[in-house]
């Protein structure tokens, strides 16, 4: 159903991330489930607020981007770091058409869930052949 088209940077599980300018860009860890009704994607994007997420669908390419502000604690210094912070970016190629108007996205506890209901037009339709 979906193939990854761009592999921007590494996931948080990997050792490093791609640097673009001053900020790092991570590839969000993703789960994809398909049912008869459609497809659901769940992307881990901790630190991204719903307003900072940008989703677009163009020519079957579903792109997801999120800008994550770097944590600052006034007066405090980072004494020990086990994870990095940065933006998230990933794109998927969809193998069928989905109605962009019906795509829903929800952000909950740092996980973005995108639901793509199957477009009715893509379901097999029998074409009647008229007699001449």
């Amino acid at each position: 159903m979906s193939n990854q088209v761009t592999s921007t940077g590494n996931s948080k599980r990997d050792a490093g991330a791609e640097r673009t300018g001053m900020t790092r860009t991570y590839r969000p860890l993703t789960d994809i489930i398909e049912t008869e009704q459609g497809v659901s994607l769940m992307l881990e994007m901790p630190g991204a607020s719903p307003e900072a997420i940008d989703i677009s669908l163009e020519r079957r390419i579903l792109s997801i981007r999120a800008n994550v502000p770097t944590t600052r604690h006034d007066g405090a210094e980072l004494a020990h770091a086990e994870y990095g912070e940065g933006d998230f970016e990933r794109a998927f190629t969809l193998s069928e058409d989905f109605d962009p108007e019906r795509i829903e996205a929800e952000m909950r506890n740092g996980v973005l869930t995108i639901t793509l209901p199957r477009a009715e037009e893509t379901q097999p339709r029998k074409i009647a052949v008229k007699a001449a």
């Binding site: 944590t71 405090a76 210094e77 980072l78 004494a79 020990h80 770091a81 086990e82 994870y83």
Partner: peptide, 8 residues
């Protein structure tokens, strides 16, 4: 993974 910040 944990990050640690300190301030006094």
């Amino acid at each position: 993974a944990v990050n640690v910040w300190r301030d006094g």
